[in-house]
Design a protein around this nucleic acid. Structure first.
Length: 265
DNA sequence: ATGGTTGATCCTCAA
């Protein structure tokens, strides 16, 4: 089972590139962030004709998340619990796969938080605390669970192309990192760092200043696996090819491969 | 010293 996460920065502007990548990479499940469209305007048919069911949590102009799956898509849940006044579309969950191989997949778009300090940074930290509470409850269910998406957090200095230039950014603040690690240490496995324990493993390059060509990147897109999912983790990686193309998103896909569940305990 | 880019919508904001 191949699961990917991809911040596409606008489904309208990215649809041809996304379809091309689906055909070429063949993921079974894709978590999309920043679709930047309302739920009703999401181009479902384009995916359904390729065999993918869609679960969409859209928003006009900003944010918006979706899960595509060609191996079943059940029990869709919209929104991150913990604040009924939060109107931003940043979280959606669904169960994919069949029977013993089923996996609960969460697709998240964590608030950017810039500028900091300020209300946007406060919102980011509060959102992260809600995510931790929700993740703790999910882990207690002891089932395969994946938290995939754009976290807008560089966990460590090696996840930043230039630490000094990013020193005042919300993505590298000690508070952001502390909450990310609080989440991770609940018992999750960072899929990319399982296979690339050290050094640069960038997933995002700014559009400005030729950042892509100079490899001035950040690692902010992550896949965190519960113990029951990590038991099945066979491979993980970053597909850099889409970032180098015309009309690219500023992010590139992160993926992992899960084996089927063991047949006996 | 501060530039530089993209997407969606409204005449700017968010990233």
């Amino acid at each position: 089972m191949r699961i990917a996460t991809f911040n596409i920065n606008g489904i309208g502007a990215r649809l041809p590139r996304l379809l091309e990548w689906l055909d070429e990479f063949g993921p079974d499940v894709v978590c999309l962030q920043e679709i930047k469209t309302q739920t009703d305007s999401f181009p479902r048919l384009e995916f359904e004709t390729r065999g993918y069911a869609c679960a969409v949590h859209g928003q006009k102009g900003f944010n918006g998340v979706a899960i595509l799956s060609r191996i079943g898509l059940e029990d869709v849940s919209i929104g991150l619990p913990g604040d009924e006044t939060d109107e931003q579309s940043r979280f959606i969950e669904a169960t994919v796969g069949e029977g013993r191989s089923a996996v609960r997949v969460a697709c998240l778009y964590l608030p950017n938080g810039n500028p900091q300090p300020g209300p946007k940074f406060d919102y980011k930290l509060a959102w992260m605390r809600r995510l931790i509470a929700h993740a703790r409850a999910e882990l207690a269910r002891e089932r395969p669970y994946i938290l995939a998406g754009d976290y807008n957090v560089c966990p460590r200095d090696e996840d930043v192309w230039d630490v000094a230039k990013m020193a005042d950014d919300a993505l590298t603040q000690p508070e952001s990192r502390a909450l990310f690690h609080e989440l991770l240490w609940l018992g999750f496995t960072d899929a990319i760092r399982t296979f690339q324990p050290k050094g640069h493993a960038f997933t995002y390059w700014d559009y400005q200043a030729g950042a892509w060509n100079k490899d001035w990147g950040l690692r902010i897109d992550h896949m965190l696996l519960s113990p029951q999912a990590a038991d099945r983790l066979a491979a993980a990686g970053i597909d850099r090819k889409p970032r180098g193309r015309e009309k690219a998103s500023d992010h590139t896909p992160v993926w992992c491969e899960l084996s089927n569940s063991r047949t006996s305990a």
